[in-house]
Design a protein around this nucleic acid. Structure first.
Lengths: 248, 248
DNA sequence: TCAAAAGTGTTGTTATTACACCCATGT
DNA sequence: ACATGGGTGTAATAACAACACTTTTGA
């Protein structure tokens, strides 16, 4: 195939992060405004080049998560997404990017006057509705991350990664509604989610009170795979969301 | 973060392929015996370095599929798996590998006296049962590919990629049994698979006859997502397979 | 006492399982 | 005719969707 003097080409490797969270019941993604020239001034996913000291790719994702987002990788969900390597995806040259999906609980403030100053939470709806652009192929990466989240909360306990250590069932419902983009009957959700063995476990005799009747608190259960799964209706039988109140 | 004289490090990029097929109702993976020195003589996944002419990663996977396996990428399923970049995964240096999962219909002969001479189909059971090793971290990559296949045939029509353009329902059942590793009731499978809208469509008045009653032929339907999905029982309620015949 | 959110009951429908049983072909 | 796989019936159970209704709090 190759003669013996042939040397394989090398590429530059970056890590890009799709960091999702819930802010006031809406799905948000952490984006940075680019300060340097390729796509300067545009919004982009946080990320950067892998370190030259033989750093593992996952470790690089953790480092970027800390440096660019001010988040601690040990306390949140982080999984690899796809790898993007179209030759023309970056004008600087052949840059291949390994994308990661991170899920953070809602409350952590976006950033402080720290390293991560350029980062801010943006509603994903701004980008999925088409009218706002992202640098490079980051729109495609974001779409893949969103699709991954949508399908993974069906079959795994990933939705609890959006919640604090204790949460109410309604908190969890807000996660499903934000990620899927439509509303769910709270009464059926309430029982369905509890019927899935190992999904959530109650925190005994502890309740959160806001308005109305205080709600039971739960925490993530031991099971990762949900059986039966939380199946969402596909946009075939019911393309639009129904109004939340049907109290006739 | 970095001073302006800093230049990002570059890595060598390879593509590795997990190519699965069914041979006499058993799941097989295509492996090559390494002819050169890192892990020389050991079994490895087919793959190779990305071309230096600005080749897209997916195109590189197609090329390796042709060169090392003698398979045509346009006629089979090919999707990206994870990317593996542990610094010590290859003794030659920093080599990052993008893994792909390919699914091929059963019948194509493994190889001829072509480029792909070193490749041969091996039962996956040899490797999942622990007693046989693979070069590099290819055992881990294979496991990821198998797990991806196991879960994807639950929710998508991926199982039809193991079949020829027309197939019987029993053919399809063999796929599920081989990938999942346990047997399924043929009568319930028969109806369940037909009840999933868009999964398979009948080829009118055409039948395949081997032994027993001739079977109806089907082809892959238009739908990619299976609703309801083909859920397999987890190893919780029924850890072992039941005998195929319960004809009391 | 009233609004609001939590939580329970009920009913009809669909999906799943575990089988018994019949059908159509080659030998 | 009989073995062999293809295909149908059925009944019990589980999951699901829709929606009425009760409970518990704050204001």
């Amino acid at each position: 195939m190759h003669n013996e003097t042939w040397r394989p080409p090398c590429v530059l490797l970056t890590v890009d992060l799709v960091i999702l969270t819930l802010r006031s019941s809406a799905l948000h993604v952490l984006l940075v405004e680019r300060g340097i020239d390729p796509h300067k001034g545009e919004l982009a996913l946080p990320g950067g080049f892998i370190s030259d000291t033989g750093e593992d790719i996952f470790d690089a994702a953790c480092r970027e998560l800390r440096e660019e987002a001010g988040l601690d990788a040990t306390s949140l969900h982080l999984e690899q997404l796809n790898t993007y390597g179209r030759p023309d995806r970056d004008p600087r040259g052949r840059i291949v990017s390994v994308a990661y999906l991170a899920i953070a609980p809602g409350l952590p403030e976006p950033e402080a006057g720290t390293d991560a100053s350029a980062a801010s939470w943006r509603p994903v709806e701004e980008f999925t509705s088409g009218h706002r652009k992202l640098a490079f192929d980051h729109r495609e990466i974001l779409d893949h991350g969103l699709e991954r989240a949508r399908t993974k909360i069906e079959n795994t306990s990933l939705a609890t990664a959006f919640c604090d250590t204790t949460f109410t069932i309604t908190d969890l419902q807000r996660v499903y509604e934000a990620v899927w983009g439509f509303e769910i009957d709270p009464r059926n959700f309430y029982r369905k989610v509890q019927a899935i063995s190992g999904f959530i476990t109650p925190v005994d005799s502890d309740r959160r009170t806001t308005k109305g009747r205080p709600a039971r608190l739960f925490q993530a259960g031991p099971e990762h795979l949900l059986r039966p799964p939380m199946l969402r209706p596909l946009p075939q039988p019911r393309p639009f969301s129904r109004p939340r109140s049907e109290t006739s």
